[in-house]
Computed example of a mutant assay.
Amino acid sequence: MTIKEKQQEIVEEFAFLEDWEQKYEYIIDLGKELKGLSDEKKIEANLIKGCQSKVWIDAEFNDGKLSFKADSDGILPKGIVSLLVSIYSGHSTQEILDSDFEFISQIGLQEFLSPSRANGLMAMTKQIKFYAVAFQLKK
């Protein structure tokens, strides 16, 4: 499945949810399914700056694909980062760099979040792109 197809699937799933309470619950459920990170990976280098809660994203590059693992000490940010990890893991650095984050506005996530949480979301997306650039340069 391409990144765009995964994003479209998320947009369609959110379209079935009637109100923000249901969307909020859906995001929280995603966070509950996230495996999280070991304590060794919860280091300053993996900590996302600009998030209200602590959010860590770690990336590994194997066989031409990036895979992400993440965790958060907050239930909502954990769900949001879980959503991003599910979309961007398993793709090449170029696919990630060529992708956009339009689906976020399509599902209305930024309008739903407080300004500080919206800033955290943008910091998470920037970190995913940063990892793609960093690993592309290492190739």
Rank of each mutant, 00 (worst) to 15 (best):
S38C: 00
I75T: 13
L34V: 13
Q127P: 00
E95P: 08
G31M: 10
N62W: 01
N119D: 07
F61I: 06
A45N: 13
E5M: 09
L83D: 03
S105G: 03
P77V: 12
E18G: 11
D71I: 11
P77Y: 04
V11C: 02
Q22W: 07
G79C: 11
C51V: 02
W56P: 06
E25M: 10
K32V: 13
I28M: 11
E21C: 07
K6Y: 12
L84I: 15
T93F: 02
E5D: 14
Q7A: 12
G90K: 03
G64N: 04
Q110M: 12
I104A: 05
I28V: 15
I107N: 07
Y26F: 13
G31I: 11
E18C: 05
K78R: 15
Y26H: 14
K65I: 09
A132R: 06
E9N: 14
K23I: 00
I28K: 03
G36R: 05
E9M: 06
D29P: 08
Y131H: 10
I3F: 01
F14A: 02
W20F: 13
A70R: 01
D71C: 05
G120C: 00
V133A: 02
M122G: 15
K35C: 09
A132W: 07
F103S: 08
L34H: 08
S82F: 05
G36F: 01
K4F: 14
K54Y: 10
K54P: 00
F103L: 09
L121P: 07
